[in-house]
Simulated scan of single mutants.
Amino acid sequence: MKSVEDFDPAKLKAVRLAAGVSVADVAKAIGSSAGTVGRWENGRGAPSPRLFAALADVLEVPKDRLLVPLADNGDLATLRTRAGLRQEDVADALGVQASDVSEMEQGTGPVRDEWGVVLSTLYEVPLERLARARAVTEAHWCERFEGRRGK
């Protein structure tokens, strides 16, 4: 399962300390272990989208308070994980299979026009940012394809 790539360990620690809760308290509240949460705070890992969403809920902060700023080269998968969503969550919202979301994120499947508003809402980004992430995803696919062709 993909971790939240843009997760900021220092922000987690700062938010947790400001809330006055221990690592163990956070871990118990999200259904994880204190060791795991401690590793996240020390930059030796990042939460899954599900646990990331739970962290934001437990700490009562918007998800972006636990993230580095969104880079211009953020792709569709990055937008999804930043929103604390699994591929299955997106698939349910779109009425498709999780494999369709996987293909979309790899650049091998379509991003239907009618999905734009739904994805923009789910990912909490404007349509323009979604379009940029789609272009980045397609560029990544082209790079991988050209690399496999040996060019």
Rank of each mutant, 00 (worst) to 15 (best):
A131I: 11
W40K: 10
R65F: 06
Q97T: 13
E41K: 05
I30N: 07
L66T: 02
A18P: 03
P9Q: 07
G45S: 05
C142H: 13
V37L: 04
T81E: 12
S120R: 00
D92A: 14
D89M: 01
D57P: 00
R39L: 13
L66N: 05
L76Q: 10
D75C: 04
S3P: 04
R65H: 12
V21Y: 02
G150S: 04
S99G: 03
G109W: 03
G150W: 03
R86W: 07
G45D: 07
V23N: 10
V21Q: 05
A83W: 08
D25H: 07
R65G: 02
A71Q: 15
P47E: 08
G45N: 07
D100M: 04
P126Q: 11
A83M: 06
V4T: 06
V26F: 10
C142V: 11
A139T: 12
L76P: 08
W141H: 14
R86Q: 15
P47L: 04
L76C: 07
A133D: 04
A46V: 01
A77I: 09
L79W: 14
K63Y: 04
E124Q: 11
S102A: 14
V61P: 00
D89R: 00
E88S: 12
P110F: 03
D75I: 01
A98D: 15
V15D: 01
D25V: 01
K2Y: 09
S48G: 12
W40H: 11
P47G: 06
E128V: 15
V4H: 09
T81A: 13
V136M: 01
F145C: 04
S22C: 08
K63L: 13
V118N: 00
G116N: 11
